[in-house]
Design a protein around this nucleic acid. Structure first.
Lengths: 256, 256
DNA sequence: AACGGTTCTCGATAATGTCGAATATGCTCC
DNA sequence: GGAGCATATTCGACATTATCGAGAACCGTT
């Protein structure tokens, strides 16, 4: 791990948390001398990864990230394939759908279909949710035991009163997830919101993403038809990616 | 400029262009030994900025970029303020609107409102357009002479037959842009598409973004009402940002 | 099963980033 | 409007740190 790059990434990460930071503040967070931080920030700035906030003398994330991220989304084969299937899923179920991938101890939403009732809803692509508090996350963890082990070794943060924070309880759920190829979550991330997720696998049979439908907890549990549509969607996407058999198999423990 | 960070940024940039690259390919592009590139890529990977493509042994951009970019958009004050005004602008004019900011020699779209006729249109947030081939870009250049000087010193790439590639011609247009506080573009970026843009300034009076309406070239020129609505929109956004007078003044040459 | 082309590991070298002190800049309070 | 303070920024000597070549391991292919 190259030190300078590690530090640069930490700078981006800090700015991700705090939005606007001065050199001194950053130096405080990273526990480095201000002059060192200044050099890093200036290097990032030259590439547009960081920008000076208009007016002030603090720094913020830069516009180059938006361009990179846009290309990232375009690069994702799963996403391109999944889009038409999830749109259809949203139409059939009348619910909003998400496609999520693992990002350390979070799930990042790489595609979002709004529920088709025409109500005003924010676009969720790009937001992240702790893995342990989402159906998407439970699916990804269940099929990636190494990540699960790592996560369960740490303290689990509670988001609502119903977030599962007990390692043993979560591990039990993960086992069930694999059995049913389906994970659920009720009020665990956001009060009043619940979801069901299923795995998406690629040619190699590895689970690389998960699809979910989100519904108001008042409509819980979902009808059997919804679950079937959801499973069918995941199977179709996986098939398009060249996956031979669905549901997929759990990836071996040390495979990374 | 820290070498390691510069190289890391170049790696990201290369992956932005090529989508998928192996270590050797990257090494070729950057003209570095493969082992050096490997170290850089591995460091980026640890932070999720780069990821191994599923299946293959090549690398691609990573999911962390999506999260960073999402925060970047949230951080942008202009964008938050502009959104309601551009939505209204789209409604009144029946056209799609864009909010753009400068990213080196390109304009990056930081917000996009689809035209409200209900037709299927792709979301343009995050795409980039060469500054010299867009109305948005001409506005940004006109108010940022240092950037204009730099750009005009180089060769201008042609996107359509109508792209302005002559430095003198462009410089003349930029002068007019400041006079009218308005830039136009007809078929210069995409055939059949034309746009008009106006500047958005912040508290300090500096132009930090531009708003535009985009229309089919068949509807060109826009009615006077559209131009008024556009100007009004930019003035409203600028006022919300604490800008005292609109149209804004050109930023002095060496001010960066 | 053997080959060619990869990615990846390791360690010595010297190039490189680091960090303290000094300077410049900009904000705040009087 | 001016003085004072806090912050950003520059600079250069030093030693930590990244670099790069050689070789091992790996993968896909013939």
């Amino acid at each position: 791990m190259i030190q300078a790059i590690d530090r640069a990434a930490r700078v981006l990460s800090s700015l991700q948390g705090a939005r606007h930071l001065g050199i001194t503040e950053l130096a405080g967070i990273l526990d480095l001398p201000p002059s060192t931080v200044h050099g890093i920030v200036k290097s990032l700035q030259q590439h547009g990864l960081v920008a000076k906030e208009p007016g002030g003398q603090r720094y913020m994330l830069g516009p180059a990230l938006l361009k990179l991220s846009n290309v990232y989304l375009d690069t994702l084969d799963v996403r391109a394939r999944a889009m038409r299937w999830t749109r259809e899923l949203a139409r059939r179920t009348g619910l909003s759908t998400r496609l999520g991938a693992e990002l350390f101890d979070e799930v990042i939403i790489i595609h979002h279909n709004r529920r088709p009732d025409g109500s005003q809803q924010m676009l969720e692509t790009g937001i992240t949710i702790p893995v342990h508090a989402s159906a998407l996350g439970k699916v990804l963890l269940a099929y990636h035991p190494t990540a699960a082990d790592e996560l369960l070794a740490r303290e689990l943060r509670s988001l609502t009163g119903d977030t599962i924070t007990d390692a043993a309880a979560l591990r039990l759920q993960l086992a069930q997830v694999v059995e049913r190829a389906l994970a659920v979550e009720v009020d665990e991330a956001v009060l009043g919101e619940s979801s069901v997720a299923v795995p998406v696998a690629d040619r190699s049979g590895a689970v690389i993403a998960a699809v979910s439908v989100v519904m108001p907890s008042s409509e819980w549990p979902p009808e059997a038809g919804v679950l079937n549509d959801l499973r069918e969607t995941a199977r179709n996407i996986s098939r398009e990616l060249g996956c031979a058999t669905w549901p997929p198999a759990v990836r071996p423990r040390d495979d990374d």
